[in-house]
């Protein structure tokens, strides 16, 4: 009797996850219907976001999301891979331990703090070097890169560490150098895991809000250069959700949220269910 009740409680809680996820999709979809019906495909292809005219095209926000995350990936991937190589192959045990723990702790620092630091310390530097406002895609890309770096490095290192020692030793036994072993054995062996880790970090970067909201600018315009302020989906949501004053405006914001959710869901699913699962099966 109690057994049954307990079982049902646990099962309901587990099913609740599925319910919530489905519910999120349904709610976001329903609320964005008005925008979709009004604008159709224009919603994602038009670069006009004019609340005063009740015209909403999300092109600039979508583009801003894509460019800022691409920029962040371009900056973070080489460094994260370098850090991962350092942590798994170069550093001695003590440094490995210290460095490894600091990286994991830094990955836990709230993103709002990265954003605040970016605004007060990094934006002025960009302003000094390149002129302009300092706020914009470049600042957003850099702050985002720094923010995802610890996570990215930690998961990439974990992927590299799955390479069996005996495989590495076999290459050393043929006269390979450390770098030979890294590029010919570890990277090919852990390829799926490494790519999966990088894409997973990308998935997080797409949805990251606070680190970029401080430094992006929230200007609904396709930027002329990466130094220009622009916006992205999370930045728009963060800045405008509480200001929306018409139902179409709200619906458009929900449309943005749905777009963001789908983008990150797809990216994360590809990382987890294609690459990381393949990596797990291989090892």
């Amino acid at each position: 009797m109690i057994d049954k009740i307990f079982f049902n409680f646990t099962r309901l809680s587990a099913l609740l996850i599925l319910v919530i996820v489905a519910w999120i999709f349904v709610v976001l979809f329903n609320h964005s219907l008005e925008a979709m019906n009004t604008f159709g495909l224009d919603f994602i292809t038009r670069d006009e976001w004019a609340p005063n005219l009740d015209k909403f095209g999300a092109y600039a926000a979508i583009l801003g999301s894509i460019i800022s995350t691409t920029l962040a990936m371009l900056l973070a991937v080489p460094i994260a891979v370098g850090v991962a190589i350092f942590l798994s192959e170069i550093a001695h045990d003590k440094i490995k331990g210290f460095f490894g723990v600091s990286v994991e702790l830094l990955a836990a620092i709230p993103s709002v703090i990265y954003g605040m630091w970016g605004l007060f310390y990094f934006v002025p530097i960009i302003r000094d070097i390149f002129g302009g406002l300092g706020i914009g895609l470049l600042a957003a890309g850099i702050v985002l890169a720094i923010m995802i770096l610890p996570f990215m490095a930690a998961v990439t290192r974990d992927a590299m560490n799955t390479t069996p020692d005996i495989l590495k030793e076999s290459a050393y036994a043929l006269g390979g150098t450390q770098w030979d072993v890294i590029k010919d054995i570890i990277i090919p062996y852990a390829k799926a895991g490494i790519i999966g880790s990088l894409i997973l970090a990308l998935g997080r970067a797409i949805g990251e809000t606070m680190a970029v909201t401080f430094v992006m600018g929230n200007v609904h315009h396709v930027p002329g250069s990466i130094l220009d302020p622009t916006t992205s989906i999370p930045v728009t949501l963060a800045n405008e959700f509480t200001e929306a004053d018409s139902s179409l405006y709200f619906s458009s914001l929900f449309g943005l949220a749905l777009t963001l959710l789908i983008m990150s869901f797809v990216v994360i699913a590809v990382a987890k269910f294609y690459f990381l699962r393949k990596a797990r099966r291989a090892s």
Partner: peptide
């Protein structure tokens, strides 16, 4: 490096590298 090319080693478990058969032998 020199020493290990003159003194080769075979391990307890087969250790085929993640590459083609030819590339393994040519490595």
């Amino acid at each position: 490096i020199q020493l290990r090319t003159k003194i080769g080693m075979i391990f307890q478990k087969p250790t085929a590298f993640p590459m083609s058969i030819f590339d393994n032998v040519a490595y």
